[in-house]
Design a protein around this nucleic acid. Structure first.
Lengths: 296, 296
DNA sequence: CGATCTTACGGGATTCGTAAACATA
DNA sequence: TATGTTTACGAATCCCGTAAGATCG
């Protein structure tokens, strides 16, 4: 009752070649084996597919009707299974990553470059969103990997720590505070401050940490973009505080930077995944690349 | 390298049930057999389709992507093969028949009725065309069966004789010739004649036969339709000559009929098929029905 | 009589089922 | 510990290849 693939393949090959002998060669099969294969197929289908008279092989009307269908079935079959193989060997695929802006801007590009060299056919979509949204997107399965800092409580999520990022002050050239090699938060609060706008994760983090110490930053300017803040600082509008991750970027913009103590505010960056779901091989490979290229 | 059907079926069943045990029951298979089946499939594809932890079975992202594809592949497979079976057991199909008007009008309806009772799902298209066109249509593979009279020479065609049809005169009531039980062609030529228009096969046949005897019919009226000729005769416009096959029809129209001798003109009706092509099972069944219901 | 498909039979590989081992909740 | 999956191994089945047979041009 059940018809195996090779019988249908035998059929199409005989139909294409018009000869059992030739088809047997193409199939790397002996002629008798092919013969019984066709015989069994015809028995299972309930009628003759070929009208054969020792000297010539021709398709019956039913065989002629089945021929294109059979070719399509086999082609679909091969194509679909090859597609799965391609996904497993990373010669094809799609991957969605969410990353908080600091990481997406400063570290992710190199990661993507290395990954793309290794797996050039994986299509990657980066969702550059604020930290909270990263968590949401992973939770809603809109992406497999999310790079952000450790979520407070998320039993449905898995967090793999990457590195600790600490905050640095950035200041325009010839700022009075530059005479000091290290700064304190208290010192910073005495100067005009430029900060990230809510609901950015880092802004929340800093405010909360300072609040614990009885300190408050009163921003003179706010912006969503770290780049804009950098430009504002370089124009002397004030100073700001940014993650170490973006320090190189700030240096390139001609800004001076200083460590900040009391307290040392850090946040732990890592990769968030859904706890119950297994990762696709593409996501696993990306995870590996991310960790390989992580600082420290 | 080659992936058998049952492995994909195993996959979809496990994916549907979410359990190896349950799937094994549905597949009428032992649990271990199913286990290695999946194992082999995963090996052939190059990666895991399920993430299983003895207690729970879940699809991996690749498995999740493959699931609908696999279902479609299997469904297409079954559907296509069932379709072939349906054509073989005559529970589905299409058949084109060409028949010359005399046969199509008078004998074919009963044949179709019987055939349809036996095989109600076979879609039949009747091409009611003149004899020469019947031959052409069969030759051009526009239909498998053609019912007409024996073609003169057609090495590419096969002719299976059905019965001999002879011609009768039809006359209006109270025609002078009705006093005679039998008529001769010579007698007929003395009265106004209504004949089929060229290129009807029967017209050609009669003209040719009479011409051999030195006789000529000079039609006063001509028509393409036997019915029209019958009506013309009944209105007294003249007499005509029709095949025996349509005699019943003519009697119903209130016409008188007489045999004609010297010469007795007959034509042999039969079924024309392409010599090289094998017939579809539907055509074979129809052929059988046609012969079963043939006169004599 | 020659080319080609079909039948017959022995050997090998695949797949199955039973039993035991293994792994989580 | 109990449930459910995996491994191990003997057995049956299916499929293949060689050799002989049948058939049509």
């Amino acid at each position: 009752m059940n018809i195996p693939l090779n019988q249908v393949l035998a059929f199409t090959t005989v139909a294409k070649t018009g000869s059992f002998a030739e088809a047997a060669v193409q199939l790397h099969l002996s002629q008798p084996a092919l013969s019984i294969s066709i015989k069994n197929l015809e028995a299972a289908l309930g009628g003759k597919l070929f009208s054969r008279s020792t000297r010539s092989v021709a398709l019956t009307p039913e065989g002629k009707a089945f021929f294109p269908v059979a070719k399509r079935l086999l082609s679909d079959w091969d194509k679909s299974l090859q597609d799965v193989r391609n996904h497993f060997d990373l010669s094809k695929g799609k991957l969605d990553i969410a990353a908080m802006p600091t990481y997406a801007t400063n570290l992710l590009p190199d990661v993507l470059a290395k990954f793309h060299t290794q797996y050039p056919s994986i299509n990657i979509t980066v969702h550059d969103v604020i930290a909270e949204s990263v968590v949401d997107m992973v939770r809603e399965s809109r992406c497999e990997l999310g790079i952000t800092f450790k979520p407070d409580s998320a039993p449905d999520l898995n967090f793999k720590a990457l590195f600790k990022d600490r905050f640095f002050a950035i200041l325009p050239k010839e700022h009075p505070l530059l005479v000091k090699p290290r700064l304190t938060w208290k010192e910073l609060t005495t100067y005009p401050h430029i900060s990230l706008q809510y609901p950015a994760g880092t802004r929340t983090l800093i405010d909360r940490a300072l609040n614990d110490k009885g300190l408050t930053l009163r921003p003179a300017f706010e912006s969503h973009q770290l780049v804009s803040i950098g430009r504002m600082v370089s124009k002397g509008l004030g100073l700001s505080v940014v993650p170490n991750t973006s320090r190189a970027q700030m240096n390139e913009m001609g800004l001076e930077s200083r460590e900040i103590n009391s307290p040392v505010i850090t946040h732990e960056l890592g990769v968030v995944t859904r706890r119950q779901d297994t990762l696709s091989v593409a996501a696993q490979a990306m995870l590996e690349t991310i960790f390989d290229m992580s600082p420290k």
